[in-house]
Amino acid sequence: MSFENQLKEEMRLVMLRLLNELPSYRGNSSTLHSGLTHWGLSFSRDQVKTELYWLKDQGCVEIELDNPDVIVVKLKERGQDVVENRTKVHGIKRPSA
């Protein structure tokens, strides 16, 4: 696996973890971008939005609002199961024990 793919898998897990910690399990692409930067993962806002759509396609998040500036997402049960290490989704880094 390429280093770029490893970073994407890490990014996806961190975004799910961030959503898991937010009130009502909801957040937006801007907040998640800031959270990723805080954890030393440097991605563009466009990359964050692209990965949020990828997570939606995997059934991990629900997109509640989509406009050109910001996407509002909510963590779904499957996404929480990934964070809690109850399920594995190919393309998302598995949480460490």
Rank of each mutant, 00 (worst) to 15 (best):
K88Y: 06
L41F: 01
G79P: 03
I92K: 00
F3C: 11
Q58I: 01
V61I: 09
G27M: 01
Y25G: 10
R12K: 03
E51I: 08
R26K: 15
V83E: 00
N5I: 11
V14M: 10
E9R: 07
Y53I: 09
D69C: 12
D46Q: 14
S29W: 02
R94C: 03
K93E: 10
T31K: 11
L22W: 08
D66W: 06
K74R: 08
S24D: 14
L75Q: 06
G40K: 05
G59I: 01
Y53G: 07
I71L: 13
E4H: 10
L7H: 09
E64Y: 13
K8C: 07
A97D: 13
K74I: 08
K8L: 10
Q80G: 10
H38K: 15
V83N: 00
R45E: 15
K74Y: 06
T31V: 13
G59T: 04
E10M: 13
G59M: 06
H33C: 05
E10V: 09
N67Q: 15
A97I: 11
S34P: 07
N85P: 00
M1Q: 10
L36D: 00
L19D: 02
V89F: 00
D46I: 14
G59W: 01
G35N: 04
Y53S: 07
V70G: 05
L36G: 04
Q6M: 12
N5W: 11
F43V: 11
V48E: 01
E77T: 08
G35L: 08
F3V: 12
V89N: 00
L52V: 06
G40I: 02
G79K: 01
R17H: 06
P68W: 05
S30N: 11
E64K: 15
N85S: 04
K76D: 07
W54F: 09
E21L: 14
E4L: 15
S96I: 12
E84K: 00
E51M: 03
T87F: 00
E9K: 11
K88G: 04
H38E: 15
N85Q: 06
L16E: 04
S44E: 03
L52W: 04
E51A: 02
M1H: 09
L22I: 07
T37L: 15
H33N: 10
E62Y: 07
M11P: 08
Q6H: 12
M11K: 10
T37Q: 13
L36P: 04
G40A: 05
G91I: 01
